[in-house]
């Protein structure tokens, strides 16, 4: 379920310093979010696609990820083109799709696709543990990073705990329905999960204190940037700025 399918490859992206990947992703996504023309958005999708190719992602996991944004985009496509006024592009019985509506929905789709492909290539390509240490190296407050790493560390055991509760309920013939009994059962199971989390928190904290935890992070992952990493990051920053300028000049629709 949480096996981080993009994080364990040996593709060119994985050899980049995680800090460089985060900065590249941030610059690129900020630039993409600000573009207003279809041409710039299409260019951004092409760049993001190239990044993704450099991360060599497993295809089934990638399709699942794209499925996650499909629902929201579908809602946009089902509303915007049909209600936004403008010259009609498609007449279908009593409803009309307008050009400005289609433009708006298509632009959101392209921009969303570019950002999702880029963050999958640049950020999902590291484990949460590496992400935490890279964020810390880039100046994120230590307590916040510690919180992220502790949360990450414990979702596995709590999910296993939930699976046990769920299996036990199913073995007793529980099938969730829209009934007060079902809601009662589910709420109690979630309550048990929260109580187990609270108990685990005390045990974990005591175990950490026993091992001399002082609130500081100690990482066995060594972050080592080579000149190539920073060169690539700089080039990417400049490229992102160029995308914004190009978009502002409106050379295409």
């Amino acid at each position: 379920m949480f096996d981080e399918p993009f994080a364990h490859g040996k593709a060119p992206i994985h050899r980049l310093d995680p800090r460089a990947r985060l900065l590249m992703g941030l610059a690129f996504c900020l630039a993409v979010a600000s573009v207003k023309s279809m041409g710039s958005a299409a260019l951004a999708v092409a760049v993001a696609g190239a990044l993704l190719a450099a991360a060599a992602p497993p295809l089934p996991a990638l399709l699942r990820r794209l499925g996650a944004i499909a629902g929201f985009l579908l809602m946009l496509w089902l509303t915007i083109p049909w209600v936004l006024p403008g010259p009609p592009a498609l007449v279908w019985g009593p409803v009309t799709a307008s050009w400005p509506g289609i433009h708006l929905a298509a632009l959101a789709t392209l921009k969303g696709l570019a950002i999702v492909l880029a963050t999958t290539a640049l950020v999902a390509s590291m484990t949460i543990a590496t992400l935490g240490h890279a964020l810390s190296a880039l100046g994120t407050p230590t307590r916040l990073v510690v919180l992220l790493l502790f949360t990450y560390r414990h979702i596995f055991s709590l999910f296993a705990s939930w699976t046990r509760l769920w299996d036990a309920a199913r073995l007793r013939g529980f099938i969730p329905r829209t009934t007060s009994h079902s809601y009662h059962t589910l709420a109690t199971m979630v309550g048990v999960l929260l109580l187990r989390a609270l108990d685990q928190a005390h045990r974990s904290r005591e175990a950490m204190l026993l091992r001399g935890f002082t609130g500081q992070l100690a990482s066995i992952t060594l972050l080592q940037a080579r000149p190539r990493d920073w060169g690539l990051t700089t080039a990417f920053l400049l490229g992102s700025v160029a995308l914004v300028i190009l978009d502002a000049l409106h050379p295409w629709p």
Binding site: R143, T151, L158, W162, P176
Partner: peptide, 25 residues
């Protein structure tokens, strides 16, 4: 400081609970 672990565990529990689907009709 002594409550940071509790917040982390509750955040993890909320994350797991958000994977639980409840039937609505």
């Amino acid at each position: 400081e002594e409550h940071l672990m509790i917040v982390a565990l509750l955040a993890a529990a909320f994350f797991v609970a958000s994977l639980v689907h409840i039937p609505i009709g």
